[in-house]
């Protein structure tokens, strides 16, 4: 009985009737798992330094009018920066362009990624080589990818024009980045080219977790490859698709470096996405308060998008895919 009471005390903090109360000031540092906390502390400090603190500081600055990197006078303006954002037509235009870029690029990446994943999952000879080749675009830094596409798409000496005119697909050189809509679509292509391998590998890992037996059963039941894909592969891949969709949507929504290198936001602001708009306002125009408010709006948008996806996933609404 005494042993049981002691067990209760040590394991559940329960005092047996009539027993003396346990020491109340047991040091919290002796709690189980504290070693793990200490070991996590360096990572926590880093996360605090590069994520938490900058976010809090950005939020703080967004309530002030800060018009210089070394400003000494920074009047408090409350929510005025946020109100200015909502009244800014350039902001809404950049939101529209960002949504277009996000939807089209994510859709194409998912489509091409699925096709490549199915191909790489097939029992091909030299499959390891194809997998290595496919991953190459993803291995390129985004800035290098942007610079490469700038060269490829250059109207005067770009390789795309040279190829298409030599194949007689185009009669003359075309300025791919010369009009706003065309330039925005070129950004999509550059992004799709780089990021499709990532999507493909995510989906490939999902494909490899599907037991081959069920395809055999489906085949015995008379299902062809197309029916198997729609009725088996796609539903079973849904968790992978959902993860890819969330990751790519968030990533595409905050596209910046590709725009910076490839078009600089032009022509006629036709490729100015919300992240690039934020950068231009904060650093080119030294409107740090306004820029910080914009950054907070981007974070809020991404949180909302993520919440919608996650809720849809929980409710099973993603099965429409």
């Amino acid at each position: 009985m005494a042993d049981l009471a002691q067990d209760l005390v040590t394991t559940h903090g329960v005092s047996p009737p009539g027993s003396a109360p346990p020491p109340t000031q047991r040091k919290w540092t002796r709690r189980p798992g504290w070693t793990a906390t200490l070991m996590l502390l360096p990572a926590a400090v880093v996360v605090f330094g590069v994520v938490v603190y900058p976010m809090l500081r950005t939020l703080l600055i967004s309530f002030f009018e800060v018009n210089s990197a070394v400003a000494t006078s920074t009047p408090f303006v409350g929510l005025r920066n946020y109100a200015d954002i909502l009244a800014d037509r350039a902001f809404w235009s950049s939101v529209g362009r960002t949504l277009y870029f996000t939807v089209v690029s994510t859709g194409l990446e998912l489509t091409f990624g699925m096709a490549i994943a199915l191909l790489l999952n097939a029992p091909l000879r030299l499959r390891w080589l194809f997998r290595a080749i496919v991953v190459l675009p993803w291995a390129l830094p985004t800035v290098v990818n942007g610079a490469m596409w700038r060269g490829v798409l250059n109207a005067q000496y770009g390789s795309l024009n040279a190829l298409l005119t030599q194949l007689h697909v185009l009669p003359d050189y075309h300025s791919w980045l010369g009009t706003p809509f065309s330039a925005l679509n070129m950004l999509v292509i550059a992004d799709v080219w780089k990021t499709t391998p990532l999507v493909a590998f995510f989906l490939l890992s999902g494909l490899q977790s599907i037991a081959p037996d069920i395809y055999e059963s489906a085949r015995v039941d008379g299902a062809g490859p197309v029916r198997s894909f729609w009725s088996l592969t796609l539903p079973l891949l849904l968790p992978s698709v959902s993860i890819v969709l969330i990751l790519r949507t968030i990533d595409a929504f905050k596209v910046f470096d590709l725009v910076y290198v490839l078009t600089g936001g032009g022509p006629a602001n036709g490729t100015q996405t919300i992240a690039f708009f934020t950068y231009a306002q904060a650093f080119s125009n030294q409107r740090f308060g306004f820029g910080s408010a914009l950054a907070d709006v981007i974070v809020a948008c991404i949180l909302v998008l993520s919440a919608i996806y996650l809720r849809a996933l929980r409710r099973g609404e993603m099965s429409v895919l």
Binding site: R57, I61, V66, A69
Partner: peptide
């Protein structure tokens, strides 16, 4: 830490 840092610095 955030409160201390934010309070210790000017906005910029």
């Amino acid at each position: 830490a955030s409160a201390a840092l934010l309070a210790a610095c000017s906005v910029t």
